[in-house]
Design a protein around this nucleic acid. Structure first.
Lengths: 352, 352
DNA sequence: CGTGATGTTGAAGGGTTTCAAGACGGGTGG
DNA sequence: CCACCCGTCTTGAAACCCTTCAACATCACG
């Protein structure tokens, strides 16, 4: 059950609305002034807060200020109640971090609508966006009103790529975002001698190609299908509308990219100094994390030795030798090319 | 001279305000309706646009919608004129991307103030934020109203670090942002055998430690002074206020981080496959880019061999040997430890 | 002037890559 | 159905690059 905190000094309004909210199925906390409201917010952590601006002791601005300070309460949707429809008041409230405001006098329906719409939005934003942008789909649908899945069904904007086919190349201008409906894709960079390093692996349901678009430049790497794939193209416009039109989404993207930076730094250390054995072990773990299915137990990968070598950042032959070592040590098993991970723990804690 | 586009169907207001704006020293374009306004915006690209909402042919919402579509006009500051102070109208306008609004009736002073404040802000945002956050300083001052430089002068929140002193360590909770008033700092990661890889170099005027804060986690690397340094600590709160309270700043940060990702990927390829010679050459180029002074000509670095080795991702001895090779080849010169770059071009195009 | 930190050079050793050749497997065409 | 071929996988051996160990030089500093 969702809980609501209603902070309002006018006893009539407070009790009246509390009743309506309870009838609508919310658990309701009420407070007659800001100070008490903050206290309740801290202890009860309601799902949403409705707060009057003009109040004795601690006014609405003070309340939101205090709640913003505490990481535990700062994410709670916050709706202001204001008697004045003046732009100045509204603006100040929004700048302080309120999500919405309701002008007095208001009806119960208005209040319920505002609450519901905010809670729904909060729901979307709570979902973690993973580095491969799982869940972006829902956000795009929510923000642009276009249902990507529906466009799939109609076959619009979907390309088919054969195994080994290039999807985009380094230097191409970034004009669209890619979504994998079916198949697997790798992104990679090539050095002067033509040696290839895989820097991204993407699976069904993943988005890729977004870094170049966010940077506003051309692709700095290439992408290639490693299986026959079906890939949806999302126009740059739609993507930018999503990213730049919503403060919360932007915040998510900042976090996502920061995480991305950290991951790359991690990989940097690994490739720079670790032994071949550890590099290969790490590559296997990466694949495992990336492609594991829901079910527990043995995990099997079918990947070309060349690609695996390029993930680990080593030569094909070195990789193969290391794999057979691992096989002898019963860390993995190889059956007609397919690699099965037997002892994930040991692989993970591989000594250098 | 700054130019203003004033779109308004009421002839009196239009001519009146145009006169005032001209007197204030702006180049003024006027349009009696939205359609014409858009046309002028496209051709003249004014520095700022003021636009009425209620207009015949194409209303204010239509105007902003069309301008947002064109990359050339979407960045122009946009101020709405509205007769209705109703929250709904204002809100809709802001959501569409307007930067401000003025409620009719208004005075010339009000208009001039709004224009000036917007132009000033646009000025700030035009400055590119570089990966080391040069220019963030101005933004912080602008957004939080605190002048960091002034705090320096008063000696508040400034720490002194001796050479080799740790500023933060991997795993520390990220509670503040660092600004180098004086000195040099490196950030680095260490692998299981204690080998160190430098992943960031910072100079006077740079900010560092922001990735962990943006990610909302603890530091994933350590930072150490490589010279005696004076470092200002900026509370997380101030930084977050800056980043998350302003859409334009957020956008900048997204671009900044995306660029960061690309750079790390570049480095990844370099460290993975390139020869020792090329790695060392790249390290020297990096240092050059980072620490070069304004003046052209020979560039000299004073850095410990150990640190340099950790930037290139190699062993100290290997680095030293490569350096003396470079010296023999007249690519660099070494005088009492200090390295002078003689032939930057050849270093840059080093063959693998 | 001694002591510790830093820089440099030599030689040995080892881990990876590279070259080379053969094995395997799947698909094609006779 | 088999021979053949091509691409991928695997193994062997040599070469090579880089690291490591060790000794010594140099520098900074009290």
């Amino acid at each position: 059950m969702k809980s609501v905190l209603f902070i309002e000094d006018n006893t009539d309004i407070r009790e009246n609305m509390a009743e309506i909210l309870e009838m609508a199925g919310y658990k309701v906390y009420t407070a007659p002034d800001g100070k008490e409201g903050v206290a309740i917010a801290q202890t009860e952590k309601p799902d949403i807060i409705i707060c009057d601006i003009m109040m004795p002791v601690l006014d609405g601005y003070g309340v939101i200020h205090m709640l913003q300070k505490n990481p535990e309460t700062q994410g709670i949707p916050f709706i202001f109640l204001t008697a004045k429809a003046e732009r100045f008041e509204i603006r100040k409230g929004m700048e302080l971090g309120a999500d919405d405001y309701i002008t007095k006098p208001f009806t119960g329906t208005e209040l319920l609508n505002a609450i519901e719409s905010r809670l729904k939005k909060a729901e979307f934003l709570k979902r973690e966006i993973t580095p491969d942008l799982q869940g972006l789909n829902a956000l795009i649908t929510y923000t642009t009103g276009k249902d990507i899945m529906k466009e799939f069904a109609e076959g619009r904007n979907v390309n088919k790529y054969k195994k080994k086919q290039i999807i985009y190349s380094e230097g191409n201008h970034a004009l669209r975002l890619f979504y994998i409906n079916k198949g697997k894709v790798k992104s990679f960079k090539t050095n002067d001698d033509g040696k290839e390093l895989v820097i991204g692996l993407f699976n069904e349901g993943d988005f890729f190609g977004y870094v170049a678009m966010l940077e506003g430049s051309s692709y700095k790497e290439s992408a290639e299908a490693i299986e026959d794939s079906e890939i949806a193209l999302i126009p740059k416009d739609d993507f930018e509308k999503l990213v730049y039109n919503n403060k919360d989404v932007m915040q998510k993207f900042i976090q996502l990219l920061a995480k991305n930076v950290t991951e790359k730094e991690e990989q940097l250390l690994n490739i720079a100094y670790n032994s071949l054995r550890k590099k290969v072990a790490d590559a296997l773990i990466t694949l495992h994390k990336k492609y594991k299915t829901g079910e527990e137990g043995k995990f099997t990968i079918d990947i070309s030795r060349e690609n695996l070598a390029n993930i680990a950042g080593t030569a094909k032959e070195s990789l193969i030798r290391t794999l057979s070592d691992f096989k002898d040590e019963k860390l993995i098993d190889i059956k007609s090319g397919d690699i099965t991970i037997l002892d994930e723990k040991k692989l993970n804690s591989m000594f250098n």
